[in-house]
Simulated assay, not measured.
Amino acid sequence: MGDRLQRLWPSLVALVGTVAVVLALLWYFGDDTDDSTPDDVAAGDVSGAEPPATEPPATEPPATEPPATEPPSADPTGPVTADPEAREPLGVLNQTDEPGLEEQARERFEEGGWEVAAVSEFTGNVPETTVYVPEGMEEAADALMAQFPEIGRSMPNVEPFNDTRLVVVLVDDYLDEVESE
């Protein structure tokens, strides 16, 4: 028995070492399975951005009521506009097959008083028109969604999106909403 254990010992050490290395790599790299993201996108440039390999996990929106962006007017059908102090720059990405939709959206957002810092086409799997929100810009995202209800949800910012601005990903539901107006 001792002779057999002595012959198996190097194999057992190699097996345990391999398992330890694999676990350490999994811990270090986590669930980052998209290694095709260009470095400039990871640094925050959304032009030409490729999507994450999987949709980021859904999170519930904050339980707090979004801040009022403008006092209610006597005309209930009037448009809602965001308080200029609540606005932040936007990036707009077009995930649809509609060419130039990101430019149309840029015009729409700018007419509404928002600065659009970047636009681009986008290949991804975002399920509905979404604003990705960097930490600290939640109030701006709430104001944007109140002014433009065709933006159906907000999510915390994820790679490869720029973390210095709100990033709106346009999906087919945006096109349906805008065309129906």
Rank of each mutant, 00 (worst) to 15 (best):
E177S: 15
E138L: 14
P99Y: 08
P38I: 02
E177P: 10
P72T: 01
E115G: 02
F29R: 03
V158R: 01
V178D: 03
T96H: 08
V178Q: 08
W27Y: 14
G112W: 06
T54Q: 10
E138H: 13
M137N: 09
T54F: 11
V169Q: 10
P156G: 07
P71H: 12
T129M: 11
E139T: 15
P134Q: 08
Q6T: 05
D173G: 04
A14L: 15
N157Q: 10
A20G: 15
P160G: 01
Y28T: 13
T37H: 03
D172W: 00
G136D: 06
G44D: 04
M155Q: 13
R4K: 03
A49W: 00
F122Q: 04
T164D: 04
T33R: 14
G91E: 07
V169K: 05
D75K: 05
V178F: 02
A58P: 12
A42S: 09
E98S: 13
V92N: 01
V133S: 07
T77I: 09
E103S: 07
N125D: 15
G136L: 10
R106V: 14
P127E: 13
D35N: 13
I151Y: 07
F122R: 01
G30L: 02
D40R: 07
P160H: 05
A140I: 12
M1I: 04
V19Y: 11
D39S: 08
D39T: 03
L170F: 01
E65C: 07
A20D: 12
L144F: 07
A63G: 13
E88K: 15
T69D: 02
G78R: 11
P52V: 01
T59N: 07
